[in-house]
Design a protein around this nucleic acid. Structure first.
Lengths: 239, 239
DNA sequence: CGTTGTTTTGACACTAGTCAATGGGTGTGG
DNA sequence: CCACACCCATTGACTAGTGTCAAAACAACG
């Protein structure tokens, strides 16, 4: 018996500016809030949904982190992306109403559930909400492009550096430290995400430690020199 | 002096079911048609737009093919995706009004230009149009996920096989042959897209030829055994 | 304190990258 | 119409970077 979680309030949620309520009037946020359903928190490795399942709701990450994955040709789980607080899960299912990947929790995590039928109703009534949803969809596409840029680069060192910088940037945007954070995923998951072996992840991380660019203690990462890390991925400052 | 191209008509366009007009009433399509601007066709390697440029329009591919790319750490063009007829270009720019990649033509190609301000106006008036735009955004995300799945696989053979099947599927959906088609891009572009060297592309293609799965003559590809090709990426039929 | 799962490290094999040379197709100009 | 140049694709030889396998160190948990 888990106690009923407290009713969600977007108005007091510190993530609201990253999430669906961004750009909405107070009364519009209040209307949005009404349709949000509470779910009990998910535990480590617990599935939020699986591939091909019918999509009845979108989910916004309230706390913790999630992982998107599919099963690859070897029958192994291939990680395709991560979701941090404030991000929307399930956008790929708006096309035909079915999830195209599976998503599970990387740690104890919670989500706000947004039933699709009610969300669609609301979008027709609140133009700002429709507009923000479109913006979020577009941003997801940009994020995907950046991930592809990362992946089609063939050096392991470059991939790790980019991965760390990606996390740094996202944690920073959430108001956390961008130089000192915890990885919520094991090496194996990072490896399958980057298309590398977990041994290579280990070796590259220790290499970066020896260069005094970062220090790593288990899942705890500290970036000592953000500039040096960025120099790895942009040696000619060709931004 | 190029002659003025004939006025576009979505009603007679055989791509309309793949494109923005899908699901719209005839009168709604006619309204959409009014805002479409004609552009002269683009030649090989001609830029449609560049990264960071302000986005004033979306583009729908009418004929030919396009390439999305960015400049990587080595100062080289890294190909991030391809656009075939019926597909929308520029969706990543809806987030903040700036393109996040550059796009150029892989051959002589033409687009329908959709000015954003007028498209947005229309979306508020035609709910079906807004709905279809959302579906297209969502589909783009799914396509991206599939590309990431491709890229985070670390075998060159798997990447090539998946790449060929991806093209086969997309050409098939366009009503063309899914076993006999022309690549509009040089090996170098395929290589940068897959995160491989162009020599590896060559070698893998000749390997597939020697296995009698495909035959390749310059840019012309013929798939002899689609099942064998699929078996490469799904050895356990674990779909 | 033992069990389990994760991470690190080492040794070795192998895939794919690099460099270089060759071959083929296309287009231009004589 | 042919000769030449250019670009692209292919092939070979070699090397560097990663994957694989195995073992050990370490942390977490009951």
């Amino acid at each position: 018996m888990t106690p009923c979680p407290p009713k969600t309030s977007c108005l007091t949620c510190r993530l609201s500016d990253l999430c669906l309520p961004f750009g909405l009037q107070i009364d519009e946020v209040e209307t949005l809030e009404i349709i949000i359903k509470n779910k009990r928190p998910l535990r480590l490795n617990e599935l939020l949904f699986t591939k091909d399942q019918e999509c009845l709701s979108l989910f916004a990450v309230k706390s913790g982190s999630f992982r998107r994955f599919m099963i690859n040709a070897d029958g192994l789980e291939q990680t395709l992306g991560f979701y941090l607080p404030g991000e929307l899960i399930g956008l790929d299912a708006l096309f035909d109403g079915h999830f195209t990947c599976s998503v599970d929790a990387l740690e104890t995590s919670s989500v706000c559930e947004l039933p699709l039928t009610r969300l669609n109703e609301l979008c027709t009534k609140i133009p700002n909400l429709q507009y923000q949803l479109t913006r979020i969809l577009s941003k997801e596409i940009t994020t995907n492009h950046e991930q592809m840029f990362l992946l089609s680069n063939n050096s392991a060192k470059l991939k790790i550096a980019t991965f760390l910088l990606m996390l740094s940037k996202r944690f920073g945007a959430l108001g956390y430290s961008n130089t000192h954070f915890n990885l919520s995923m094991p090496r194996q998951v990072i490896a399958s995400f980057l298309g590398l072996s977990n041994e290579t992840i280990s070796r590259q991380l220790t290499a970066l430690c020896k260069e005094n660019i970062i220090s790593v203690n288990q899942r705890q990462v500290q970036i000592h020199d953000l500039t040096l890390l960025e120099a790895i991925i942009e040696p000619y400052h060709s931004h």
